[in-house]
């Protein structure tokens, strides 16, 4: 099987290790990863800031870059939701573009969705270590409906212990442009999240979105915590 990987601008720019872990993980399951070189950003920042004309530029570029029939895998809930849910909505007055956007949306998977539903990775006996807790990103959960998949994967790790995060469905305060608009509120929410994470006694906190993880990592750093903040691709790839 072959998939097209959309790394997301955050992974591409800030977290190349997560991109590499994603490729390694997919390869372990016999999936060949193609990386369309022209990819940029899905347009999410402009979407939540309220600039649909700018989002359309990003969306058109994405749709032409990811043409074809292969599944598209994205290691981010909010970017995957952007492509799956927001693109078709964005072009609601343009039937040709809707068709194109819907076609791409139907081929798009968030990473853990693909791992569980296409590759049954939760039954593959991957290995792990230490205590791991998990933050549920909002759009992953509420827009894509991906609630159980990441937890199934983490629970399947032989040698690791999954510890649930209290109040794990409360927003971490990232919210894209929100972080810049109301920084004090954003930090207050990240602090609450960090306290909850520290309270679990976990060695690692993981999630499916680098936006949230970046915000959480900052709050952990301010506390001088030694708990590692890792994308789920990294946690899973360690065991292959």
């Amino acid at each position: 099987m072959r998939v097209l990987l959309f790394a997301t601008c955050l992974v591409d720019t800030f977290y190349p290790d997560t991109g590499e872990a994603t490729v390694r993980l997919l390869r372990h399951f016999g999936v060949e990863t193609a990386f369309p070189k022209r990819q940029t950003c899905c347009g999410k920042p402009a979407d939540s800031a309220g600039y649909p004309e700018q989002v359309k530029k990003a969306a058109r570029h994405f749709l032409s870059t990811f043409e074809g029939t292969d599944p598209i895998v994205i290691p981010s809930g909010s970017c995957a939701s952007m492509v799956k849910n927001h693109y078709p909505e964005l072009f609601k007055d343009d039937p040709d573009m809707i068709r194109k956007a819907q076609g791409v949306a139907d081929r798009t998977f968030e990473l853990t969705q693909f791992l569980v539903h296409r590759l049954q990775a939760d039954k593959a006996g991957l290995k792990g270590s230490g205590k791991v807790t998990y933050h549920s990103s909002c759009q992953l959960m509420r827009e894509l409906g991906v609630r159980d998949e990441p937890i199934m994967l983490l629970k399947s790790l032989a040698g690791a212990e999954f510890v649930p995060l209290p109040n794990s469905t409360q927003c971490c305060g990232f919210g894209g442009v929100f972080m810049g608009k109301l920084p004090e509120v954003s930090m207050a929410l990240a602090d609450e999240k960090a306290e909850a994470i520290i309270g679990t006694g976990a060695h690692v906190v993981t999630g499916c979105d680098h936006g949230c993880l970046m915000n959480i990592a900052d709050a952990m750093k301010r506390r001088g915590s030694s708990i590692e903040v890792k994308h789920i691709a990294q946690v899973l790839a360690e065991g292959v």
Partner: peptide, 17 residues
């Protein structure tokens, strides 16, 4: 904002691919 974001990676994922 900038205090809270990490520094971008020296080599992007795209270049490593």
């Amino acid at each position: 904002l900038f205090v809270r974001l990490p520094r971008p990676a020296r080599k992007t994922f795209k270049r490593s691919m």
